[in-house]
Amino acid sequence: MTVIPVSLGARSYDVIVENGLLARAGDHLAPLSRGRTMVIVTDENVRPHLATLQASLAAAVVQSEAIVLPPGESSKSWAMLETLTDRLLDLGVERGDHVVALGGGVIGDLVGFACAILKRGCGFVQVPTTLLAQVDSSVGGKTAINSKAGKNLVGAFHQPALVLVDPTTLDTLPARQVRAGYAEVVKYGLIDDPAFFAWCESNAAALIAGDADARSCAISHSIAAKARIVGEDEFETKGRRALLNLGHTFGHALEAEAGFSDTLLHGEGVAAGMALAYGFSAAQGIAPPADAERVRTHLAAIGLPNGLAAVRSTQSGHELVAHMMHDKKMNAGTLPFLLARGIGETYVDKTVDLAKVTAFLDAQPR
Score class of each variant (00 low, 15 high):
V93S: 03
E73P: 08
N306A: 15
G333K: 11
W78M: 11
V127N: 06
A258E: 02
I302K: 07
D43E: 14
H318S: 13
I191N: 05
E201H: 02
D97N: 07
R296Y: 03
G112L: 09
H252E: 15
Y13H: 13
G155H: 05
E345V: 01
A242C: 07
A209S: 14
A180E: 11
Q284F: 01
L335S: 10
L243M: 15
H318C: 05
V270S: 10
H248R: 06
E201I: 02
D27Y: 04
L308I: 04
R341W: 09
V62T: 06
P48Q: 12
A271W: 05
V15I: 14
H221F: 14
T168G: 10
N203A: 12
V270C: 08
V125D: 11
Q63S: 15
S33E: 09
L22A: 10
A206K: 13
A79R: 15
N245C: 07
L118G: 08
L118N: 08
G123T: 02
R241I: 03
L50R: 13
G269R: 04
H326E: 09
P289D: 10
H158V: 11
L361G: 09
I117L: 15
A133G: 15
V106C: 07
I107M: 13
K148Y: 05
E255K: 03
E257H: 04
L299C: 03
S220E: 15
R34W: 07
G72I: 07
T237N: 13
A300P: 00
C217M: 14
A271H: 07
A205C: 09
A359P: 00
L276K: 09
D14G: 11
A277H: 05
E232R: 14
G267N: 09
V99S: 14
I67D: 04
D14T: 08
L50E: 08
L243R: 11
L320N: 11
I145W: 11
N245D: 04
V185Y: 10
T169E: 03
R179W: 01
S33I: 07
E73N: 12
L84G: 06
A256Y: 02
A101E: 03
P365C: 13
D86I: 09
S74V: 10
G155D: 01
D136R: 15
D97H: 08
P336V: 10
A206I: 02
L153F: 07
R296N: 08
Q63A: 15
F124G: 14
V357N: 01
